[in-house]
């Protein structure tokens, strides 16, 4: 067991996923199996190997600082589950 239910639960909270006891049980065992398989990466010598975060070798992709029209606030809010006076509305934030 590499990853405890506590860690899975904590990870769930970081990802804003609430896990029921059953889910916690299931995901813990599945994640452990996957992580066990992934363990094989530890066999490889990666000394002096640079990481690849993206395969492209492009440099300095930039855009010119010009303004283009924005969406209207109606368009911006069109998909909103809750809105009021051109604002998105959410439960009270502390």
């Amino acid at each position: 067991m590499q990853i405890s239910k506590e860690i899975v639960s904590h990870t769930g909270h970081l990802a804003r996923l609430h896990l029921s006891d059953d889910e916690l049980e299931l995901y813990s065992s599945q994640l452990n199996k996957i992580l066990e398989y992934i363990e094989k990466l530890k066999k490889i010598d990666i000394t002096n190997i640079a990481p690849t975060f993206n395969v492209l070798n492009l440099k300095n992709v930039l855009r010119v600082d010009t303004v283009r029209p924005s969406l209207t606030s109606e368009e911006a809010l069109k998909n909103a589950p809750d809105k009021q006076d051109n604002f998105f509305v959410v439960p009270k934030v502390y």
Partner: peptide, 15 residues
């Protein structure tokens, strides 16, 4: 380091 960064390095080897 143990997971994401290591995987990114292994990705270099595969590439």
């Amino acid at each position: 380091e143990a997971y994401y960064l290591r995987a990114a390095k292994v990705r270099t080897l595969i590439k």
